[in-house]
Amino acid sequence: MSLLEVERINTLYGDSHVLFDVSLHVAENEVVALLGRNGAGKTTTLRSLMGVLKPRSGAIRLNGRPIQGLAPARIARAGMQLVPEERAVFGGLTVEENLRVARLTAEKPWPLDRIWEVFPRLKERRTSRGRTLSGGEQQMLSIARALIRDPSLILLDEPFEGLAPLIVQDLVELTKRLAADGRTIVVVEQNVAAVLSFADRVYGFNNGHVVYEGRAADLRADAAPMRGFMGLAA
């Protein structure tokens, strides 16, 4: 049985239909990438899964339990955790306070020491306010805030966007380590080369439709299928 099953969800922004019958599934310990051009519906899919947007129709099941229509807080407590594109670090709170907020309702939260092991840089900056962190540190904190809740599924939305290449390299290594540790991850990312280096499977999005499903290894060997949903860049 898949950890996450999504069946024909349709999501609208007001009157604007954005997702059309999107279906996908994610098995435990799997890393799934959602690829596509800007506006293809990838972020909307993640936000629909997390309950930030309510799909108009369709079904979403996490661990076999239906979660569509639930508030984000309940979906988070069911084991899903979104790391949003804008990072959404609490700027007025310290690094440690950001983490403490995140672990408040977690069933089996990680001890802080485990977070410091994974993110030594955050330990150095534990008393710094979120708004004083660099972009890369904020992204680490955003991911750490998800990890401390020990979720069964992490949704990463554009984790490498707007960061310097060296920082991206660090974060790619981190994501690879998480994948190797058996974390189940759904990732949306424009940096196709980076994401294909650790993803197991790929869904291609175009205009709110899923137009491709396949193994990341196949796309690494032959990028041709990506032209349909990534355009010339692929």
Partner: peptide, 11 residues
Amino acid sequence: ENAGMVGILGI
């Protein structure tokens, strides 16, 4: 700062 994110963190 961000009530939406607090919700996403399970609160």
